[in-house]
């Protein structure tokens, strides 16, 4: 029996890392589907990439900067406008632990 590429515990761990709570059903589903997808993806191993540089950017751009000049910032009210929980000055979040 072929060893599973990805197991339910892996999916759980990844969910924690990505801060997404998955239902039991989702964990089982993803274990199956991601297994299939990862198997398909492994066909990249057929390709010889010795001495090939990765392409992190398709264009040969370098040294794109901005000058250290202040521009008007967005108002506090606008930035806080969409916040789910806030007071006049701050975003509010629950305790860490």
């Amino acid at each position: 029996m072929k060893e599973k590429i990805i197991k339910k515990e892996d999916v759980e761990y990844l969910g924690r890392l990505a801060r997404i709570e998955l239902t039991e059903e989702e964990k089982k589903k993803f274990e199956k589907e991601l297994g299939k997808i990862l198997e398909y993806i492994s066909k990249l191993n057929e390709v010889n990439t010795e001495n090939i540089e990765p392409t992190y950017h398709v264009l040969p751009l370098k040294n794109v900067f901005r000058d250290d000049i202040p521009e008007s910032s967005t108002s506090k009210e606008e930035i806080l406008k969409n916040a789910p929980d806030k007071d006049d000055d701050f975003f509010k979040v629950p305790r860490i632990i």
Binding site: L44, N45, V47, T49, I52, E53, P54, T55, Y56
Partner: peptide
């Protein structure tokens, strides 16, 4: 990393 290399090809 592997995928970025195949991307080059």
């Amino acid at each position: 990393l592997k995928a970025q290399k195949v991307r080059t090809l």
